[in-house]
């Protein structure tokens, strides 16, 4: 088993599939009355969050606690982090506390890679800057597999601000590893110039959402921050929404079986219409539930053994 989960690129197809299979078992077990499992008893998991992300932190916390690990939440607010302590000094503190795993959320790309140099335990990337969010990609893949039964050969459109999206990066890497055909869609300003060469040669690029929809099994909408507008990535929220928003007419262009995903939090009315977000085709609530099972699987596989 791998030691760290810093990037979806850390996962080969076999390991990724093992995580998804393990997550399925974890999901089956979480239906029971006693939800706690003893696998990580006596292990310490630190949630080191430099960015506010209540949903991700809670998901990791629930996952660790269901496996009986001790959880320490170390957040940027109300700790020495806000007093300007360096990541390295924080790492040495966590090391001294005997952290077996550190789950890190950070605004700087690559912070988990740096952290892994300074702690003995496992490092799990819970989102770093505009780099990656590998557990999000795993839960997305899990959700696709449980809804559609497979990942191999699946056609997935990832739509929106691919340039700044850690979710997109991790999903492109993981989904192509697992045999899906990924197309990134968005205005050219928000699609990195070398996306295929950088992530996977199999990645396709399109600037035309309407052309991609009829041939997609999964349409994953990314959050688009309105401040991108000020930086001339696109002229206005209205124009963005018209060209790349998923509204009801566009939903009808998708095949009957196709699903709509969103990593959240959503800008309703911007990249996704409320009717689409709430439709039965949308997996948005499922994604959240699956997050706990997937994170349990990751923590178990990283920490369960020797």
């Amino acid at each position: 088993m791998i030691k760290h989960l810093r990037s979806a690129a850390d996962l080969d197809a076999e390991t990724a599939t093992l995580i998804l299979d393990t997550a399925a078992e974890m999901a089956a077990l979480s239906g029971r009355e006693v939800k706690k499992l003893p696998a990580l008893r006596g292990r310490t998991v630190v949630n080191l969050f430099y960015e506010d992300s209540t949903r991700t932190r809670i998901s990791f916390e629930a996952a660790a606690k269901r496996l009986s690990a001790d959880v320490i939440n170390f957040s940027a607010k109300g700790s020495s982090v806000s007093k300007g302590e360096s990541l390295k000094d924080t790492a040495l503190t966590l090391q001294a506390m005997g952290a077996d795993a550190v789950v890190i959320r950070h605004s700087a790309s690559g912070a988990p890679h740096r952290l892994a140099n300074w702690v003995d335990g496992s490092v799990v990337n819970a989102g770093d800057g505009t780099h990656e969010h590998p557990t999000q990609a795993l839960l997305d893949a899990y959700t696709m597999r449980s809804r559609l039964g497979r990942l191999d050969g699946l056609k997935v459109a990832i739509v929106g601000d691919v340039l700044h999206s850690r979710v997109a990066r991790s999903n492109v890497l993981l989904l192509t590893t697992l045999g899906a055909q990924v197309t990134v869609v968005g205005p050219p300003t928000l699609i990195p110039l070398d996306v295929a060469a950088a992530l996977s040669e199999k990645t396709q690029v399109s600037f035309d959402l309407d052309a991609v929809l009829p041939d997609s099994d999964v349409v994953m909408m990314l959050r688009v921050q309105t401040e991108r507008m000020q930086d001339s990535y696109f002229p206005s929220a209205r124009e963005y929404s018209r060209r790349y928003g998923l509204d009801v007419p566009r939903l009808h262009k998708m095949p009957e079986h196709a699903i709509v995903m969103h990593p959240g939090p959503m800008n309703r009315g911007m990249e996704i219409a409320p009717e689409v977000a709430d439709s039965p085709r949308s997996t948005i609530v499922e994604q959240v539930a699956n997050g706990v099972s997937v994170r349990m699987a990751v923590l178990y596989l990283l920490l369960g053994g020797k």
């Binding site: 088993m1 299979d21 089956a28 053994g305 020797k306």
Partner: peptide
């Protein structure tokens, strides 16, 4: 499946889970 309840979990490489 008893994997998560084993007392030697930590002595060996991580095991895949069986079905319950």
């Amino acid at each position: 499946d008893i994997t998560l309840y084993r007392d030697d979990l930590r002595l060996k490489a991580t095991r895949a889970l069986g079905k319950t």
